[in-house]
Amino acid sequence: MIEMSDVWKEYPNKTMALSGVSIKVNKGEFLYIVGPSGAGKSTFIKLMYREERPTKGHIFVNGFNIDRLKERKVPYLRRNIGVIFQDFKLLPRMSTYENVAFALEVINTPARHVKRRVHDALEWVGLLDKAKMFPNQLSGGEQQRIAIARAIVNNPAVIIADEPTGNLDPETSWGIMKVFQRINERGTTIVMATHNKDIVNTIRRRVVAIEHGRIVRDENKGLYGYDD
């Protein structure tokens, strides 16, 4: 599903974010990316959805050769990947329904399919009753659920989440993790960068630790491994 071999990333300001990373993620896996701030987690994630290009090395995601992917083909890669962020990235002037439908409309989905698919996605995250409300009327956890609904509405093969619980209180975070688990159970690969020790240590999955731009640990059902 995801494969990186000897990937290096140096930013124009000479910061070396990743130094020779290799990893293989299978379909249906649930992967935590842990490590100190500035260790290269975000770069690692950004390379997967082609927000950044590697300086060196090869990356394959869902059959796309990312290091050779032409600029105009990037949208078609993104349609197979759902991306979720700490700050939700919702459109404030659109309702819950419209925010999710937006993802379908911009990839030119026929109108007759949009309604049913948005309905299904909102049902998945348990927000069907708040379809007509606007983001500022909803809690942080509910807003993140909208973002998740938007990410899964295309039925992507991979969900990539960069600290999805970073802005949420512990209780809400558990609710979000339940949604991720259910998405993973239906066969969707999940890659999640996180600082949440409790979650990693309780919902035990594959843990990849990145420090100074290198993978220093990769174990199944691993622990968080840091004190904070």
Partner: peptide, 16 residues
């Protein structure tokens, strides 16, 4: 720009 950012993330083509 926020809308454009999200459009790019969910796979809108550049011409769209």
């Amino acid at each position: 720009r926020r809308e454009i950012e999200i459009m790019k993330l969910v796979g809108a083509t550049n011409w769209f």
